[in-house]
């Protein structure tokens, strides 16, 4: 037992170090985002603490040799793209998972076809799509060629999430509705969907996040109007400046905001039933 406790302690300490390893670059990035500007570089030591690079991100600093990040439109595009991807892949994922609730011939093939979408490396898919677009003669755009690939990538995640949700879903509730004379489509809207909503929310969150940060698939397919990750990739070629770190901190905060919204929605949807019950009781 003695040695076991020692082992536990060692593993615990190790896990602490592991988390430090995960967060290390993150912390360094946070610190360096407060570097003095415009002369301070993306390295130590900190010349002077300042919020210069944050102002720089928003274009509030006087022009300098450091070009502003091309984020305005790119950010908007990325958000629009992520939103559209989220909607389409959640719908597709839910439909397909719904189809998988019955056994059918060829289920193995369809399963692997869908899951392949998340397995194929992005760069290959991007390349293939670019080739197709080139041959067919269509323009490569973020809302066209890039969008369909984003769905190919996120649809499997949504599908797997919904599959897990449906696995735990009590089918008798739907059968009860049919037996009451309610057609399947209406049953889905009035019964199934409200019950699986928390799962749908998770699928949407997955799809949005993956699409928003998607990069290798977008690189070859977005054309000239770039998305946010492509804009950041563009800064690789030239010297990097702490403005990219300031931007990183900001996007992280934005992500947290999004996660909070998700958390609030989840809590609300769980609590709604209870609240409704209490209100009915009072009335």
């Amino acid at each position: 037992m003695q040695s076991n406790n020692l082992l536990r302690t060692i593993l615990g300490a190790y896990t602490g170090l592991f988390i430090l390893f995960l967060y290390g670059p993150f912390i360094v990035m946070g610190i360096l985002s407060f570097q003095a500007g415009p002369e301070g570089g993306p390295q130590f030591p900190i010349i002077e603490w300042s919020t210069y690079w944050y102002q720089h991100v928003f274009g509030l600093t006087p022009p300098s040799r450091v070009a502003p990040l091309p984020i305005g439109e790119a950010l908007l595009r990325s958000l629009t793209l992520a939103f559209a991807t989220m909607v389409v892949s959640t719908v597709l994922g839910t439909l397909t998972a719904q189809g998988f609730r019955r056994n059918f011939r060829g289920s193995g093939f369809v399963f692997y076809l869908v899951v392949l979408g998340m397995m194929v490396p992005g760069v290959l898919l991007g390349l293939g799509m670019a080739l197709v677009a080139d041959q067919v003669g269509i323009d490569r755009t973020w809302w066209g060629t890039a969008f369909v690939l984003h769905v190919v990538y996120t649809f499997p995640f949504a599908f797997l999430v919904m599959l897990a949700i449906f696995n735990r879903f009590d089918k008798s509730v739907e059968e009860a509705a049919w037996a009451l004379g309610v057609p399947p489509g209406r049953t889905f809207r009035k019964v199934t969907f409200p019950m699986i909503f928390p799962g749908v929310l998770s699928a949407m969150l997955f799809a949005f996040t993956l699409s928003y940060d998607e990069f290798p698939r977008t690189l070859f397919t977005a054309g000239s109007d770039v998305t946010m990750p492509i804009a950041i990739y563009g800064t690789f070629a030239v010297e990097i400046h702490p403005n990219i770190f300031a931007f990183g901190v900001l996007t992280t905060l934005f992500s947290f905001a999004l996660l909070s919204v998700y958390g609030v929605l989840m809590t609300l949807s769980v609590r709604r039933a209870k609240t409704a019950a209490v209100q009915e009781e009072i009335a």
Binding site: W178, A179, P194, M195
Partner: peptide, 22 residues
């Protein structure tokens, strides 16, 4: 004929009540 057009009632052992409704 699909279930919803049969006009037969079906009461399940597990009740199958809609948990999100009163």
């Amino acid at each position: 004929r699909p279930t919803h057009l049969r006009n037969l009632g079906f009461v399940q052992q597990s009740y199958g009540l809609f948990p999100h409704m009163n």
